[in-house]
Design a protein around this nucleic acid. Structure first.
Lengths: 224, 224
DNA sequence: GAAAACATACGACAGATGCCGTATTTGGAA
DNA sequence: TTCCAAATACGGCATCTGTCGTATGTTTTC
């Protein structure tokens, strides 16, 4: 047909714990030229297996999946398979998260409440080596400083690197566990668990377990 | 029998705040015979408008939508338009919620992580006047009493009616507000706010603000 | 009109939390 | 090797929370 390069189709891995969303994505992609979904995954473990097994070009990743402990997962995959581009698909529109995802190596950031057409635009942009941001979060990246209310929140709007342990703690807090219970679960001192939590709240500028919980849930951490 | 279903197509309203899920649903439905989606809505207000305007047969309702304050919404719509059957589509698999949805008048309960084929099965069952439960929640309705561990949870697994005020409090707790802040917000005594919260936790068998928050978020209440 | 449910309000007490420190060990980066 | 960040651990103190009471006015329902 065209005098372009080879017609090698662009291959996708779809990672989302909701079968319906996977189905929707597959159908959307199947309507596009020269694209094919070569793997699906409903949780982090399955995803890693698929990433290792297949040699896909693009991963569409739901940050809210079980076993996908947020942003860290992106860097991990980028490190494992650098050629695999990652487009994040999530309900989370926090500037913090958007920036963190990009810094971790995501090539695109789509939101679940966005226009489905954005998927095509994102794929196009990413294939060309660019980066794509959903319209709903495009503001997140521009002018991080110009805040109508330059509140205390301003200084943590920059991507906050959480340590692995802190992520672990965050997930447990999100499940409603008390410091003591977390300590038991992890086999550490309750005081240490408390300290981790304190550090978390400091980094995130949150001030109660409830706020932490809300944050964790919005991040897509499992809540039960 | 009625030869009713020969010509007239079954009409749908799809209510979900995620465009992608709506798209997936539309595509799935479009592959079925004699079915058509006549309206979509991304929030509660738009949904009510569509419900009033169109005369659809079946509503596929995401309980997690903004402006859809949970189960109550189902009874409201059932009351407004009794002929409109409702199939709930949500990520929430709590037995409590499943039962409450059915009691409120839902004809079906699908989960987002379920098999997409269930949608077809549900539609079929509901059209015949029956009720459909996703496989992932079918356990929820069977034998509420026979519990392997007859824990204290047993007696609140039945649908818990929350008062208006309690819902209000729940939403504020979910936002990470302290009892005092809630009191200020509502212009009542901090002690009263605490009492409401106690009652809530009692009804829901939860034991911390974090658990309450997680619950509220899963219910689809706004968290920020 | 009586009964029930709801919203309001207060108090006591144990325990947990939020916030402020300090300090040791360890593993990886400079 | 040196240095730093991370993970570990402890304590004090004011506050908040969870759980238990009790009580009164108002609204809804029967």
């Amino acid at each position: 047909m065209n005098g372009d390069h080879m017609n090698r189709p662009l291959t996708f891995i779809i990672a989302d714990d909701h079968a319906l969303v996977r189905e929707g994505l597959k159908m959307l992609i199947s309507t596009m030229d020269n694209m094919s979904v070569v793997a699906e995954a409903a949780d982090g473990e399955a995803l890693l297996a698929q990433v290792a097994k297949t040699r896909a070009d693009l991963l569409i990743l739901d940050l809210g999946m079980p076993g996908v402990a947020g942003i860290q997962f992106i860097s991990d995959i980028r490190e494992l398979v650098p050629r695999l581009k990652i487009v994040v698909l999530t309900a989370n529109i926090e500037p913090r998260t958007v920036r963190a995802a990009l810094e971790a190596g995501a090539s695109g950031y789509l939101t679940k409440d966005g226009d489905p057409e954005e998927l095509g635009e994102a794929i196009e942009a990413v294939r060309k080596g660019g980066t794509y941001l959903a319209r709903t979060v495009r503001f997140a990246i521009s002018e991080p400083s110009r805040n109508s209310r330059p509140s205390a929140a301003a200084d943590i709007l920059s991507p906050v690197p959480l340590t692995r342990r802190e992520r672990e703690i965050l997930a447990l807090v999100a499940q409603g566990l008390t410091a003591r219970e977390i300590a038991e679960r992890l086999g550490i001192s309750p005081l240490t668990a408390r300290k981790h939590r304190e550090n978390l709240m400091g980094k995130l500028n949150l001030h109660s377990a409830a706020e932490l919980t809300a944050y964790a849930v919005r991040l897509g951490l499992p809540t039960a």
